[in-house]
Amino acid sequence: MKLKNKIKFIYFDLDNTLWDFKKNSVMALERLYDKKIKNLKRGNIDFQTFKNIYEKHNSAMWRAYERQEITPEVLKIKRFEKTIEELQLNEWIKATDLNDVYIHSLPSFPYLMPNAKEILEYLVSQYSLGILSNGFEDTQYRKLQSGGIVKYFDIIITSDQVGCSKPNEGIFQYAIKKSGCSPKEIVYVGDDYKIDILAANKMNIIGILLDPQNKMKEDSIIKIKDLIELKNYL
């Protein structure tokens, strides 16, 4: 199904759609562990344990943020407070210290999803491109810079900037207005079925799900396993 003649603007999610968040985050957590956790006198905490506990609490905090139950500032600190509490490190380290190291190092890593640059190079001469991401404005911009892809985008929108996060209709309404296009002239490419694709479709934006592991069995949406497959539609 070719969408080419209908589409004028393409928005991309950033984390795990263009920028390989999983890989980059592990590297940032390793740096954090080496600097702040590994040599604590409390000891006996291996990296995998630290990583698993942090990721559990980080995921829970992001879900709460997407439901608009907490602010970005609370998210940043609470995920580390919960991690420290579970690891029984309250007397040894502060959540703010962990967050500072993580937030500083995370966007410095450059790894992208397969064929990210290739597909952007292909699309940029045909469409206007934008980023629509749940995240912190400065951090997301630095990720784009470190990955060498900031030059491809006319518009960069973050939930931090808008004041609401996906799947809230407000952030999509803002993105539609900024694009200068009608919803039916916009494609949104993301990796999350609910907060990216269903939310976009609800606004009459065409959602395309990046699903490398083919986990989503829903046949009513457009799915791709690799970004390069966007050539089949655009």
Rank of each mutant, 00 (worst) to 15 (best):
Q140N: 06
Q161P: 13
N168G: 03
F153K: 02
S133R: 04
Y141S: 05
D160C: 10
L123I: 06
L144F: 02
T139Y: 01
I131V: 12
Q161A: 04
I156A: 05
G130K: 06
G148S: 07
I149M: 02
R142V: 09
G147P: 01
N168I: 06
S125E: 14
I156Q: 09
Y127P: 03
P167R: 04
Y127E: 03
Y127M: 02
Y127N: 02
P167G: 06
V150D: 15
T139V: 15
V150W: 00
K151M: 01
E169Y: 00
Q161F: 10
G130P: 03
Q126M: 09
Y127G: 05
L129E: 05
D138P: 00
T139M: 14
S133W: 08
G147Q: 02
G163H: 09
T139S: 13
E169Q: 12
S133I: 06
K151H: 10
L132N: 01
S159V: 11
D154E: 13
Y127F: 15
G148L: 04
V124P: 00
G130W: 11
P167A: 08
L144W: 00
P167D: 07
Q140P: 02
S146G: 06
Q126S: 15
K143L: 04
V124D: 14
I155Y: 13
S159M: 12
K143R: 11
L132F: 08
S159T: 12
G163T: 08
S146I: 13
N168V: 05
I157V: 11
C164F: 14
G130N: 06
G163Q: 10
C164T: 15
P167I: 11
I131K: 08
T139A: 14
S128C: 09
K143W: 10
I131S: 09
